[in-house]
Design a protein around this nucleic acid. Sequence first.
DNA 1: GCCGTTTTCGGCCCGACTGTTTTCAGTCG
Length: 590
Amino acid sequence: MNPGELSVRGASPHTLAMQNFAVAQMFDDIADYLEIAGENSFKIRAYRRAAEAIAAYSEPIEDAAENGTLREIEGLGEATTAKVQEFLATGKVRYLERLREEYPHSLLELLKVPNLGPKKVAQLYRERNITSVEQLISAIEQGQLTGLSGFGPKTIENLRQSIERLAQMTTRLPIGEALQVAKNIVTALAATPAAERVEIAGSLRRGCDTVGNINLVTTGRNASALVQAFVKLPQVLSVLEQGEQKATVCVRPGIEVHLTCASPQNFGAVWFQATGSVEHLATARQKAESHGLRLQADGLYRGDKSLAAAEEKDIYAALELPYILPELRENRGEWEAAEAGALPPLVEVADIRGDLHTHSTWSDGSVTIRQMAQAMHERGYSYFAVTDHSKALAMTNGLNATRLRDQAKEIAEVQAEFPGLKILRGVECDILRDGTLDLDDEILHELDIVIGSVHSGFKFDEATQTARMIKAIEHPAVDIVAHPTGRILGGRPGYAVNVDALIEAAHDTHTALEINSSERLDLNDIHARTARDAGVLLSIDSDAHSPRMLPNVALGVLTARRAWCAKANILNTKTTDELLQWLHRPQAKK
DNA sequence: GCCGTTTTCGGCCCGACTGTTTTCAGTCG
């Protein structure tokens, strides 16, 4: 896809947010090319910062361009401002066009292969004329890399495995991105005259952490007009299928959006079918049969007679069951629970009273503690924890004991300005390779809250990794273990670790485990369910490095709901007093 | 390329690991 296209297509008023995305992408592309070109690393960082600044900008970037306030955005200077304006005016940037003439666009895909950085990509291009992942695979298979300096047998084997893993991960879209894409289309479609109701269905509605494609269900007076409007949306790159009642389009390479039009009378039945899961539907069909009913893709039937099912609850009612929420529809016990009248009450975003994992400019966060406090206050939170990185993570300017004590002074000042918001002194302390913590006990015990995290040693075998993490869980100072499996959606799988053993240790030591709501969603729904069943408290945190990441907790809440979590299973639904009491809990630590 | 400032240019994000080397380059967090 040519990112330039996005901007031209993005001119519709319903896709303003896409402009920020497209402009940020433009700067990221420039940075990628410059890396391959071996440019000055600070120049590259300047372009990355510009990309981040625009992605983080909360208003449409074209408004800032019109108002002449682009330069006020931190990270944009003379050169980048000019490029934003050129891009908005023409959909192109000549500087980037020149880079594209020099380097094939597919080289940027190669950069996404783990263990393959800009230097090696440039080398593969110069010395073997390899310009794409496909060509790299074939070169490896045909032994064309042997003799290339820096590419020994281990490196080549690592690359082969990296490409395999990458292929597995890029076929599915992380839920955060999928929701953005879907909401954008829903908004645009809902604004067309033909639409009455537009709803998200499929795995996205069930809150799965990644989705293969996006499903939408609509009603409207004129189905074919709706389909027409859908395939003509500015986001659509190509139309894959088009009928009277449904259509499938491609909105990003590999990402399909299916639209099904339903009549208002059977909307519930169609939405139910389009939501899934396959397993939940199979059980539903069996139960329908035992009630003398038939569930089909287009509705609910008794014999040949179509029964009205305008809402999903009509389907469950026909099965003499209470409504089952989409997040539970996985055939993981929801039918039995529904029959027993024991469906769990699920935690909601509104139950979250604070955020226990956040960063500030003291380490790698992009805003000050004061700015973060203001954002927390605006969200209506009762408390939040400042948990910057510890010194082992040197790249993030991690804190030692001295700086943590200096930080305490600033926290006290900001605390005085926000009397209704409890600001906890914390740290995200690295769990070192041997399972000890990066800071000594004296400073850790001064803090209100300590998060333990793994940021190194990803290649340990399972037994070593598990023992290392249990050692940290057993440390008396550790309150929460963050992102316990280390996975990044669409980025990397987690390290090898026995999560059941971690959960057991967390249970024995009254330690909470995190559902990290950033691009990780770690723990995932399955592990979180195990933790919940074991009575381990879960903390749904944003891991925010800027205020714009705070709303991500909604994704963590979805994961918790898929794990059958109620409010009581979540640490940060506690009131401030309850939380402070918990932080002083008697710990069965060894 | 951006920023801050001493308004004209120097500083900006570091350290460990891996695999390849034969003393270090590349990648990653």
